[in-house]
Design a protein around this nucleic acid. Structure first.
Lengths: 123, 123
DNA sequence: TCAATAGTTCAATAAACGTTGAACATAGGG
DNA sequence: CCCTATGTTCAACGTTTATTGAACTATTGA
C-alpha cells in the first residue's frame, strides 16, 4: 500500500494512450463520475466505483487511468482518493476532455455511465 | 472487390468504438491525413497511405475506421476512395473530432502523422 | 490487541488486437 | 487478350487486453 504511485508529467501525457484509456466503457464511466464530482469535492475513492466492477478489476483500470495521466491518485490512510487531471489534460489537449464528456453525457443511457448503487439509490 | 462495404448509420456510431479507433497511431495518422485533405478534394485512396504500413495491414485499419463510422468508403473501378464522416461525427459528438485533430497537430512530430513519402517528397 | 475495512498483487484465462506474407480478385490500358 | 496496378482475403503469429478469484497488506476503530 505504501506510497503514492507514479504519475506521468504533463508533457509525458500521450494522445493515443489517453484515447485508448477513454475508449473502455468502465474507464469512461470512472472518468465521467470523476467529472461529475469536480463540481463538488473533486475527489472520489475506489469504493465509490464498486458498482462498476469488482475491486481487483477496478484496481487494474485505475492503474491505466493513472499511468496515462488521466487522473491523479492520492493516498490517505487506507483510502486512495482520485481526481481528474483536468488542468493538465486541458493544457495538453484543449477541448478534448470536455468533448468526450459531453458526448458521453448525450449517450449516458447507451453507455452505462452510472454505477448500480447510484442508479438505484440516486443519492 | 465487388460492391461498397457496409457502414453504420449515424445513430449507430458509438463513442467508445470511435475513441478506440482513434487511439491507434496508424489510424490516427490516416484520419489526420483525411482531415488535411478535407480542405481540398476531401477524398483519398488506399494507395495514398502506403507510407504508413503494408497494404494488407492498411486494409485492416481501413475496415476498422469504416466499421465504427469514422470514414466512408466509395468504390470506383479499381480504387477505393475514402473521406471523413465529418458531418455525422460532428452531429453525434460535437467538437470531438476537432479536438482530437488539433491535439494531434500539436504533437505532429511525436506521433508520426505523415507517411514517409509525404515527409520525403513534401509535395 | 483484534477484527473489520480498503485496497493491492498475482496467476490464470479467454478474447481481441496488430502485423505479416502469400494467394486471390478486379478493372483498365496497351 | 494479357499485363499491370489496386486492393482484399485468409491463416498464422505473438502480444496485449479485460476479467476473475484467492491470497495478501496496511490502516483504523473498538
Amino acid at each position: 500500500m505504501s506510497r503514492t504511485p507514479p504519475h506521468p508529467t504533463r508533457e509525458q501525457i500521450e494522445l493515443p494512450l489517453v484515447l485508448d484509456c477513454l475508449s473502455d466503457p468502465i474507464r469512461l464511466a470512472i472518468v465521467y463520475q470523476l467529472a461529475q464530482q469536480e463540481r463538488v469535492s473533486s475527489e472520489l475513492c475506489c469504493g465509490d466505483f464498486n458498482g462498476l466492477s469488482g475491486k481487483s478489476n477496478l484496481t487494474y483500470h485505475f492503474a491505466k487511468l493513472r499511468e496515462c495521466g488521466v487522473m491523479q491518485t492520492r493516498v490517505a490512510g487506507t483510502n486512495r482518493f482520485m481526481r481528474l487531471r483536468r488542468e493538465d489534460l486541458d493544457t495538453r489537449f484543449p477541448g478534448l476532455l470536455d468533448a468526450v464528456l459531453s458526448s458521453a453525457a448525450k449517450d449516458a443511457d447507451r453507455l452505462q455511465l452510472l454505477s448500480e448503487c447510484e442508479v438505484v439509490e440516486a443519492d
